[in-house]
Design a protein around this nucleic acid. Structure first.
Length: 301
DNA sequence: GCAGGTCAAGTCTAC
DNA sequence: GTAGACTTGACCTGC
């Protein structure tokens, strides 16, 4: 049995539970102008520093940056020249951000779809992804800074949709620098996503909660292989009442069960695995999990 | 200051 | 044919 000592890094997503700190401060479309965007970016950066500080104090190793970090960055009404000014602002904050040495990743919303054969939807999705890549590049995040999306729609023919997804990624090879795919709870299960990731040679972000809802037979050794030299990122949440809803916290039992599902497939060359808690109570969920694991604290990095 | 209404986008399901 | 869920709150308006 391979020991897990110091292998698991955890983290929370986007904001604090009560949103006093958030990397998702935004505006509504009709207020889209340079002044408002710059104001939002500054606010998001200021809060990002505080969220990294909080993460560090909790012992977290990973943080998900909000997708609205630059509001409407991929919208046609967004003036591309604004990026120059935003870049300057990011550079000002950069030394402080890098100081924490916390892995930063991103997860664009449900409207980013690469399985489509609709040119307009594809174009919009690629623009949105390009913006996410731009942010991570400007934050000087290394290749562990992935951008994870779901498989998208199936349009009544899943095989055709999967082929579309492969074609659209192969036609835009720049995506392979950071793009990762995640299993969902209704359309693309872990087996589907593993096949896609193997075919495309991109990482597979395994979501334990979705896997419980939409189960399929998978081999974790193969999932780890898709990560190559990168640190794997996995997601966990517990049920929050109804079937698909994320809970406030992550149950200790769910966390331990998750570890058990992949523990025997770990190899010595995997030095760390990051697990993002997709729990509504964010940092409180992290704290509760750490407390719950205190007798097995050796698990966490 | 606060409560309630509204908010870019796509897909799928239920009615 | 269309409203609502999904997600995930956060912003804005009107009082």
């Amino acid at each position: 049995m391979i020991k897990l000592k110091g292998k698991i890094g955890i983290g929370f997503i986007c904001s604090t539970y009560n949103s006093t700190l958030s990397t998702n401060h935004t505006i509504i479309l009709k207020n889209l102008n340079k002044k408002n965007v710059i104001k939002c970016v500054n606010r998001n950066l200021e809060d990002l520093i505080k969220l990294l500080e909080l993460s560090k104090n909790l012992g977290c190793k990973i943080f998900r940056l909000g997708s609205q970090f630059i509001p409407f960055a991929s919208h046609p009404n967004f003036n591309k020249n604004w990026f120059k000014e935003i870049e300057k602002i990011i550079i000002d904050y950069l030394p402080e951000i890098k100081k924490y040495n916390i892995r930063i990743t991103m997860h664009p919303g449900q409207y980013v779809i690469l399985s489509t054969d609709n040119k307009k939807i594809l174009k919009r999705s690629l623009t949105e992804l390009r913006y996410h890549f731009w942010v991570l590049e400007k934050l000087e995040v290394d290749q562990n800074g992935i951008v994870v999306i779901h498989g998208g729609g199936e349009y009544g023919n899943k095989l055709k949709a999967m082929k579309n997804l492969i074609k659209n990624i192969e036609n835009n090879k720049w995506l392979k620098e950071r793009l990762a795919l995640e299993n969902d709870d209704k359309i693309y299960n872990a087996k589907d996503i593993l096949e896609l990731c193997q075919c495309l040679n991109i990482p597979f972000v395994f979501d334990y909660f979705h896997h419980q809802i939409f189960f399929s037979q998978i081999n974790f050794k193969e999932i780890f292989k898709t990560w190559g030299y990168r640190i794997p990122e996995f997601h966990i949440s517990s049920s929050g009442g109804s079937k698909y809803k994320h809970g406030d916290y992550v149950n200790i039992k769910d966390f331990k069960d998750f570890i058990k599902t992949f523990q025997r497939d770990l190899t010595d060359n995997i030095k760390r695995i990051d697990i993002l808690l997709e729990a509504k109570k964010k940092e409180l969920a992290v704290r509760k999990l750490i407390l719950g694991l205190k007798n097995e604290k050796y698990l966490l990095v």
